[in-house]
Amino acid sequence: MRRNAGPLYVAPLALWLCCFFIVPLGIIALYSFMSKGVYGGVVHRFSFGGYTALFNPLFLTVTLTTFLIAASSSVITVLLALPAAYFIARSARKNLWLFLVIIPFWTNFLIRIYAWIAILGNNGFLNSLLLATGITSHHLQFLYNKYAVLLVTVYTYLPFAILPLYSTIEKFDFSLLEAARDLGATVSQSIFRVLIPSIRGGITTAILFTFIPAFGSYAIPQILGGSDSLMLGNIIARELTVTRNWPLASSIAMVLTVVTTFGVVLFIRLNRFQTVTTAPEAFTAGGVDGDEQ
């Protein structure tokens, strides 16, 4: 009988994740229950201070803003991604279109943000154009508000919604739409009653892939946002580096972690339920005795 080499293979992985992921996360969890030091940092004394501070109206507003920006950007993204993914999946040149969607996102993330500054900035392309054509007589402020944050968030995460939607739509058996039409459904009925329910998994994946990163967003509101678009990520960074209230920074980070994890667990539950109802054999295969042919 062969010796089990499994632990040997996973040892470096387990060690690395433990040192640089689990322990740091544990430290944040710990710090969120400690007191703030006079000159920043933490004092090792138990306190709920980090959490009670969250109920300050400022943080409640920021949390609400964060949720609204993340939710609206993911809804807009998915609404754009659905028809785009449908088009790619039904096209004869799928690979070309997919390539076209992915390519811009191999340029640097900050360059993409910069591109929008170059267009929407006070001295940007759009302002220059408006001034030159005489439509306006003074510079307009397009940036540093929540709409700019929303726009660039959609821009950044749109491919992450298109790809999972594409892969589920591509697997969809389109003769079902014809069957629905044959049975008397209108085009829109066949789409809303047959196609959309069948690609539910892809839609939830797309929402997850846009909502979660948008909810934990830092760079986009930091660079393009204003006072109306402060998000939780910005508050964490501010509490950590400027105010140096580490317990508060940690407790906000914990909130982000818990919300994210909860969202993913919910998603996995939903998806597992789907796989159970559609493919029960996945759970019975690989049983004790592989005699099945």
């Binding site: 009988m1 062969r2 049983g287 004790v288 005795d289 592989g290 005699d291 099945e292």
Partner: peptide, 20 residues
Amino acid sequence: LGPSGCGKTTLLRIIAGFEN
């Protein structure tokens, strides 16, 4: 010889050394 799940493959895997 036997139906699915009768243990014949398990016996084979024990002889081959994949199961104890």
